[in-house]
């Protein structure tokens, strides 16, 4: 079997460099398998994240030959000939080697005003498949944060992280907005506090999403329209198709419902 050279970035917040590893190729392997083989032999302290090894948990995102990908879903035999470069996601601070500090995303999650449904009837809510499907698309998100990684608003501008939720959370807001049971209105909040206006629809996020969520077309663009509408049309934008309740006002939206 032929050999492959892996160029893996190693280091921490103080800096680092590439380290090269030469290994035998093995049939059917993905990049994560090769990283694991390096860990098990030459470099047991090589840091990376993973859990499911099946593209389901979103832990193993890294930049492979400069592009954000899930290491567990990237087949070695589908990469171009030559050395394979693996670097951590650039938008987030380095912890060690391929592991980055993604706490920005968890901080943004805390700022999402929760779902506010009406009280549940004894035998559960009734919702129809066509009404839940839009939300289901966004709920496929595995929180790999690769869309956040490529979004230029934060990739090149650390300062924007204070007031920019990023594509992962725009789909979360869209999901809540389109939720058949929700009565919370987050439109002004998304515009004023979460920086929806910074997005100029480059679609880079959609291109990298491993779940093939149409982040821009199905979430961001409708949200932008919706936010504009908020100023003259306070009633539901999805109106006809989805049986939804009247939204509360935007000023109440950032209030978390009581547990």
């Amino acid at each position: 079997m032929s050999q492959v050279t892996m160029r893996v970035w190693r280091g921490d917040a103080n800096g680092g460099d590439f380290q090269e590893f030469a290994l035998e190729r093995q049939e059917g392997e993905v990049v994560l398998d090769v990283i694991h083989r390096i860990q098990a032999t030459e470099a047991p302290d090589l840091a990376c994240r993973w859990n499911c090894k099946a593209g389901k948990c979103g832990s193993c995102a890294a930049e492979i030959n400069g592009k954000p990908r899930l290491m567990c879903m990237t087949r070695m035999d589908q990469l171009p000939e030559g050395p394979v470069t693996v670097t951590p996601m650039r938008t987030f601070p380095i912890i060690r080697d391929l592991v980055t500090d993604v706490s920005f995303n968890f901080a943004m999650a805390e700022r999402v005003p929760a779902l506010l449904p009406p009280p549940m009837p004894e035998d559960g809510y009734r919702m129809y498949q066509e009404d839940v499907e839009r939300g289901q698309e966004f709920r496929k998100c595995i929180e790999c944060f690769m869309c956040q990684d490529v979004c230029h608003v934060i990739r090149d501008h650390e300062e924007n992280k204070q007031h920019y939720a990023g594509p992962r959370f725009f789909i979360r807001y869209a999901e809540l907005e389109m939720h058949p049971l929700d009565t919370n209105d987050r439109r002004d909040y998304v515009r004023e506090e979460m920086g929806l206006g910074y997005c100029n629809i480059t679609k880079c996020c959609t291109e990298v999403c491993p779940e093939h969520i149409k982040i821009t077309d199905n979430a961001i663009i409708p949200m932008k329209e919706r936010v504009v509408d908020a100023h003259y049309d306070p009633v539901a934008w999805l109106g006809r198709k989805i049986r939804r309740r009247t939204k509360r006002t935007a000023s109440e939206a950032s209030v978390q419902p009581q547990p």
Binding site: D123, G124, Y125, M127, L176, L181
Partner: peptide
Amino acid sequence: VRELEQWGALFDRTKDGKI
């Protein structure tokens, strides 16, 4: 299972809108 929908879960539905 039902209470999960109070917290935002969206299960697949039957024709009459149940889980």
